[in-house]
Amino acid sequence: MERLKPPWLRVRAPGAPLQLEKLLASLKLATVCQSAHCPNLPTCWGEGTATFLLLGEVCTRACRFCAVQTGWPGEKPDPQEPERLLQAAKALKLNHVVLTSVDRDDLPDGGAAHFAACIRLLRRELPQVTVEALIPDFGGQRAAIETVVRSGPQVVGHNLETVRRLTPRVRDPRAGYDLSLAVLKAVKELSPDTVTKSSLLLGLGEREEEVEEAILDLRAVGTDILVLGQYLRPSPAQLPVQRYLPPEEFARWADWARRIGFQAVVAGPLVRTSFRAAQALAAVRCGSS
């Protein structure tokens, strides 16, 4: 343990196995909840929601905040995964399905066609369900971004993760601050009605004016939903936490971000990109956050 946790990083958790665990294991579906050691796992899974991790559990990138295994999978996407995902969405009676994936730089389209196949199947079979796709940068390939956007998700997320100065230190060298902004901009250009979303992890050593710049940059490319969460080190192998921001500081950033035009802001120490995702989308649709 790196240091004493502040009191706001205490989470209630049931001391018994969760039903969702068995279902996901039987369907051989991965979740980012598990891979990221997410502290909200007991909360979300206890409520019957999860964020699915598509395209395997090995990522071609090696971001220094992330616990997902790095490698070069080299395998084609599992053609049965969309169907299993559909089964899970039905079994869990999800109203809002959040999909994310590892980065697949080993695939020519970065996995975009597989991502799109999953979304299309969900949209076709469960038309009342909304779908949120938290996508990688696809190396900036506009065609890959378009493939996902045209499959019809209501929300497309792509995370900026950190401020410009810290990006080379925090993210994989193939990721980029401007590249991520370009991905979010491209989504809006391709489909202005698609809700876009992005997250910043705070507590990595960023300065206040740098956070301000990042939030303004996200707004400038039309991002609708802003997510701000505390960086939490998943294991001793990742970057140490530089600072634990108190809840009030998140609240101040959230107030300011709403004033400069974000349609919804989800901010707090334990907030992650897909945490309360359904509520964030509802806030956008109602025109308030």
């Binding site: 343990m1 946790k5 958790a13 001391g15 018994a16 997410c38 998943p234 334990l270």
Partner: peptide, 12 residues
Amino acid sequence: EADKAVFVVESP
């Protein structure tokens, strides 16, 4: 305590 948070475990 895990690396990311402290969990307050509830009796089932």
